[in-house]
Write a protein that binds this DNA or RNA. Structure first.
Lengths: 340, 340
DNA sequence: GACTGGCACTCGCTACAGTCGAGTGCCAGG
DNA sequence: CCTGGCACTCGACTGTAGCGAGTGCCAGTC
């Protein structure tokens, strides 16, 4: 376990060189490029130890060393400082996000921005409904037996759903329904609505009862159970950088995983108060993504968190730079949401 | 130009075999697998002619023949009948699409279904706003100086947009605005709204004029100019089938093209009355997609067309099967929309 | 005149041997 | 504890050879 400072410096140098060149790094090249103050032979001894401890490995006998997932982990935890963003990057973020007109627009711009800045696959979760409150509910008659239910959340999300009523209903009743649901639900957190919705049904007049019952089912389905979460994705083309060297040759499993909303949600959706989350290679729970790393964080107006965002790339990625970018973008998006 | 029946039969056989095996097909293998009734030598002579005419080519001397884009074109136009769908496929379509609850749901299910059935990349355009009519406009006060504008189209699309008013506005005025825009715009085609929106401003009372002016700008921007079109995509993982043999090795340009909404729209959005559109390889206008083929068509309730859908794959694709599937799915989706 | 069998030829693919060199592990000495 | 030296390993690359699928051409047949 004796990892003295020099061994750590060697590991850091290996990670940095490998990330930069994408080629196994040997002892000689290392001492040439970094001021380690010792000879290649010494470095070799250190490498032997690092390998024994599982931080690096040799692709084959007479090749240089490559960091393992464990090596990257140590690097991220103890050997790297987060790079400050360049002013150019800050400006890029501001310029890119400036002038967004609605939530869709914000999310789309953000995900493209992230993909472009990190040159990796970017994922942005729409503000989670579970963390939103109802701002307004609208009922629009489509025909005598059909309503369009539109829910506007304080996070800017708008969800709609068709309601098929059990029978025809007069316009006045629609007005009543609208008033009732708004009185009861506006301002409440979506995660807390189920009992309130039930109460609405219980308290409804006999006249409104059937319509209200149907409406409540739809409300619950739409707001709580069903596809509650939405996600935007960009930059899949970046997976092809590094000419199939990363990802052991096949993009297939990765592209497949990225098509599953559930998977994406797992990647970036499990938002914890902890600021930044880095999952490296095998640390990922999803089998198809064991050869990738994910850097993610939560975002939201002020200190609250309403959703997650992050990027996915090869384990061989520039962690300090990526972390800095993800953090900065999340902060800007949060500010943007706070304004609305 | 003398392409007699046998030469056409040879071309058809080459296309079919190549699509099936993905390997250049030689004269001997051809006569073995198809009942051509002639010897390999004769087939070779026919092949020489077909090559001279540009329908097939040899990857290298001493290899079999491969169809050219021109060869596929002839095949699609004159040598293939559209395969009827298997009952299993019909059932799959019905099962998959049954129970969709709103437009988003329909589009998502459709695009996944298409990707799955054709085992290619599927693209579905949301019903175009330009081809929709206004069903209802809703104004929801967010604060004294902010409104949320929600537009519901007859095709089921719902668009929203934040309206930043020039000054505070009382609730009664919002009601008036809502009434006015609905009176004037409901039932009109979106493509015809601009003059009507202008009229709204002109006819507004002095009191409402400022708010109406802002509202009209947003209306025009949202409904006519801005990101008017939406698109769903699925099945990119299918690009990796055939192990990089298709697409001359690099998915990069294709993935890049697929991230551009504009490009996707060009692919499937230019809906013409003509039923089915097949663009093969070089026939594509987008450079990045010259090594792919696109099969697309329009869809909509009844005979009208509200949007496009289609699939994208290697030029070496099963055209009859793909065409049949795309057509069938488009028809089902149209029926589904007609019901709402 | 159209088709066929035969034949020489082309050329990509695979296997194999040989060389080169980057990189290692180990050891003796400072 | 570090260093220079040395023998060793093994992948990458090169060149050669043989194989075989497939072709184009030609003379012969129906």
């Amino acid at each position: 376990m004796g990892l003295d400072d020099r061994k750590l410096a060697v590991l850091r140098a290996i990670v940095e060189d490998y990330v930069a060149t994408q080629e196994p790094v040997g002892s000689k090249a290392l001492v040439e490029r970094h001021q380690l103050g010792v000879s290649p032979a010494t470095v070799r001894n250190d490498m032997a130890v690092l390998e024994e401890e599982g931080y690096i490995r040799q692709p084959h006998t007479s090749a240089g060393r490559v960091p393992t997932d464990r090596g990257y982990r140590l690097f991220v935890d103890r050997l790297s400082r987060v790079k400050p963003l360049s002013p150019a990057e800050r400006r890029a973020i501001e310029r890119f996000l400036f002038g967004a007109v609605d939530l869709d627009d914000v999310v789309h711009r953000t995900v493209r921005l992230l993909a472009q800045l990190t040159r990796q696959v970017a994922v942005v979760q729409y503000p989670s409904l579970a963390r939103s409150s109802v701002r307004h509910l609208e009922l629009v008659p489509i025909s005598t037996t059909r309503l369009m239910l539109v829910m506007i959340a304080d996070t800017g999300r708008v969800e709609q759903r068709l309601v098929e009523l059990p029978g025809p209903i007069p316009a006045d009743d629609v007005t009543d329904l609208r008033r009732l649901v708004n009185e009861k639900l506006v301002g409440t957190r979506l995660s807390e609505t189920p009992p309130l919705v039930q109460a609405l049904v219980d308290e409804a007049t006999a006249e409104l009862r059937p319509a209200m019952t149907t409406l409540s089912t739809v409300l619950l389905e739409t707001l709580v159970e069903r596809h509650e979460e939405r996600i935007a994705l960009a930059g899949t083309a970046n997976l092809t950088r590094g000419g199939l060297l990363d990802f052991q040759g096949s993009l297939r499993p990765i592209l497949e995983a990225l098509e599953e909303e559930v998977v994406l949600l797992k990647l970036i959706g499990e938002v914890e108060p902890s600021a930044m989350r880095v999952r490296i290679g095998d640390e990922n729970e999803i089998d198809n993504l064991r050869s990738t790393s994910v850097v993610s964080t939560g975002y939201g107006p002020g200190a609250t968190i309403v959703g997650g965002l992050g990027v996915l790339g090869p384990t061989r990625m520039d962690y300090p730079g990526t972390i800095a970018t993800v953090r900065a973008v999340a902060r800007y998006v949060g500010d943007l949401l706070a304004q609305n």
